[in-house]
Amino acid sequence: MSPAGKSSSKADAALLPERQIRKILDRALELGKSVGSEETEVHVDEVVDALTRFANNAIHQNVAEHGLTVSIRTVVDGRTARATTNRIDEDSLRSAIQASLSLAHSQPKDPRLLSLPGKQRYRTVNRFVKETAGVTPEDRARAVRRACDLAVKRGQTAAGIFSTGQTQNAIGNSRGLFANYRETHAEFSITMQEESAASWAKANSAKVSDFEPQRLAERASEKAHRATNAHELPPGRYTVVLEPAAVLDLVGFLFYDFSATAVADKRSCLNQRMGKQVFGKNISITDDVYHPLQLGVPFDGEGIPRQRVLLVDRGVPKNLVYARATPKPQRKSPRDTDSHCRTNMAKLL
């Protein structure tokens, strides 16, 4: 990987500085107040992403995007609704607020609607790595070229992606809450095919130098080669060893079932199973956005700080993740929420 700034092409665009994000957010809050919104919540989300995609040992897609959205939730007379726009001029923000108010007025009063939360205290999470933000299209192309050359040399066919990007998620409301989170992210994944065999490797991190694309390519290449003489096993019960990524795929199917709302709706596989020995005693699962290997926004869609939650303790489902508005019988204290706007998928380890 070339250090940032040494390539001949430019790195992807930069995120707006926080003061500019705050300016957009404050303006939207002011407009909300001026048109009669009793409470207003504003999200400003910005993305600068690039993704280089390769197949048949060559780059076939190579894309970049830069976008910013402003999402405004107004509250009036026990009613709330949301409008989102990616236009940040005064007229567009005003239109979005008016649309949100109009939507809110059109519905029945919701007696359960909570007031917006006030100021919160947040743990410092630093996952913005300049090195990752400085990666250029040429950096990605060179890394892909090396992986593809390896495939060609070994008579294999490579396909995969190398992506890098930056995101910024800010939230503010009329009760003084404000939070902003920036992170970088990088991912390399590769499938190596040899005859009818294929193997896959993947890594991701906030810091691009945490993984080496070429080592992943070599690993996938070696596994694919070893699989060329695979033979079919008859159906039966076997001991199976899964790679971490495969384990994540399985665990991932459970993510939404740990939502207190899913349990309240009686559509979670954990219905009537909380506190019981459901998994093996060697299985513990924690939702922890603060883990050093984790990515993700450390607050929820209402700006509530996320907590570390022990979901499964030695095979027993112990806790769920809650929104502020989760019905009281299930509610303990506010934890992760996905209320109203951003879906914060549980981060599981």
Partner: peptide, 8 residues
């Protein structure tokens, strides 16, 4: 109850 627009 949500409305959105995106132009680019």
């Amino acid at each position: 109850l949500a409305q959105s627009e995106s132009l680019g």
